[in-house]
């Protein structure tokens, strides 16, 4: 006992220090998960995240699939936003350009940011955007109307993917949200001023 006493006096502190380092690492990991999750989704198409590739397809495929286009606008953004066509058919490896029509219905400048995904989720890894309006924040002047292109193709690799065998139709969806500058005031005055729905 006596021989080991000095060592054992420090040992609990060492164990505790190691455990604190471990817990701190997990905490850091939880924050790191934000960029990691984004990178993971972008790399694997997890959760229906489309891929990006400015280069375009390298091969032509055989299968023909339907791609449907969906558009949503948040309540607090006074925009009309809809695809020019409801759906198209295309062969894998074929690059297509489609347009979304957008109009600011208000008399002041507004800005929005799009969230997007494709469904079914497993199609994300094979839906490749060459160019898209959704990559940055968009501004529209009063009553301004525009047409925004999306350039994309379906990766022929999907023909080899077991999970894509049953998929005939892929939907690309955008949801525009008003750009937020800061967190809204949290007093109950502003909350109550809003009429109840």
């Amino acid at each position: 006992m006596n021989a080991t006493a000095p060592r054992s006096r420090n040992r609990p502190r060492l164990i505790a220090a190691a455990l604190i380092v471990g817990a701190t690492a997990m905490l850091a990991l939880s924050f790191a998960s934000v960029p990691l999750y984004r990178a993971f989704c972008a790399a694997t198409g997890f959760g229906g995240t489309p891929k990006t590739d400015a280069a375009g397809p390298t091969a032509r495929g055989e299968r023909v699939l339907t791609v449907r286009f969906d558009a949503n606008v948040a309540r607090d953004l006074p925009w009309r936003f809809e695809p020019e066509v409801a759906k198209i058919s295309l062969r894998t490896g074929e690059t297509k350009t489609i347009y979304y029509k957008v109009a600011n219905l208000s008399d002041h400048e507004t800005s929005g940011q799009a969230a997007y995904n494709v469904t079914p989720g497993q199609a994300g890894a094979f839906f490749v955007k060459v160019a898209c309006f959704c990559f940055e924040e968009k501004r529209l002047g009063p009553r301004e109307a525009e047409e925004w292109p999306v350039v994309f193709y379906l990766d022929p690799a999907l023909e080899r993917e077991e999970g894509m065998r049953g998929v005939r139709e892929i939907t690309l969806s955008y949801s525009f949200f008003a750009t937020k500058d800061a967190a809204p005031s949290k007093t109950s005055e502003t909350a109550i001023a809003r009429p109840k729905g």
């Binding site: 997990m26 905490l27 939880s30 998960s33 937020k180 500058d181 800061a182």
Partner: peptide, 23 residues
């Protein structure tokens, strides 16, 4: 030790989303 720091990080980000304008 493994998972509570993740909860802490998870709700801290919610707290900053709510109060400090993070997204």
């Amino acid at each position: 030790l493994l998972v509570l720091p993740v909860l802490a990080g998870c709700v801290t980000m919610l707290l900053t989303d709510r109060n400090f304008g993070t997204m």
